[in-house]
Design a protein around this nucleic acid. Sequence first.
DNA 1: GTAAACCTTGAAGTTCACTCTAAGTCAACA
DNA 2: TGTTGACTTAGAGTGAACTTCAAGGTTTAC
Lengths: 136, 136
Amino acid sequence: MYSIHEVCQRTGLSAHTLRYYEKEQLLPGVGRTPGGFRQYSEEDMETLGMICCLKNTGMSLQDISRFMTLAREGDHTLRERCELLIRHKETVLTRMEEMQRHLDKVSWKIDFFTEKLAEYERDQGSSGAGPENPGD
Amino acid sequence: MYSIHEVCQRTGLSAHTLRYYEKEQLLPGVGRTPGGFRQYSEEDMETLGMICCLKNTGMSLQDISRFMTLAREGDHTLRERCELLIRHKETVLTRMEEMQRHLDKVSWKIDFFTEKLAEYERDQGSSGAGPENPGD
DNA sequence: GTAAACCTTGAAGTTCACTCTAAGTCAACA
DNA sequence: TGTTGACTTAGAGTGAACTTCAAGGTTTAC
């Protein structure tokens, strides 16, 4: 059993965020001490691991909530969850390929700017104050 | 010269978004017809290309706005812009590597769920209504 | 036993990137 | 000349994912 503070340290999520996730049905029904403090079980920690996994690959909290609702319904939703994960993986792969293409464009721009910069500094050097280390 | 409608078609951005970008200083000073309608020049289109390039690689509109302000200041900001782009590229590469790691985790989860599903369906098949194609 | 640190709740506030609304203007066509 | 329909503006609204606040209850260390 872990306090909210321990869970923060293990997951990197803030206490605020953990309470928010509970409210939003991503991880409902977390246990309480007699005093009313949250107590996370080993199973809760595993669920949180899955939540972070999905969140880190860009799934919306709403979709994660739906996935977790299915998980709570039991093994008869295994096929649905499996298919959902496979579709999600494909989405992420597509997104990464797109990102690579966009990044290629940024690389071209860098080449273009580097060339333009070299030209500009050559002009500055010949007509202006001169290079800082002429005899280097 | 392009009307806002033509720019929408060429960039995939909505008219609302184009006006918003103008207001937010990403692309200020777009020309007007005598009647007050926006007229985008060839140069504006190039700037928009750069904006989309940065946006598509996840740069915030605030940072894009800063970049565009530098661009308007002239060639003496070339070095700064070049360095900025290089740093951005590194950030994106790091983000993509992280994403790949997170995606690997999703893949493991899929394997795990696939196995669990096979087990579950085997159990269902032996104790329940039986497979749908017993003689296949 | 009391003070400081930490927890609880519900609700309001924040940031980002749009997106929509209202009220009015402009252009093209019958 | 009138009527569509696309354009203009300022400003309000939206949704996602938190984040902060206020007011109070619980633990723990001295």
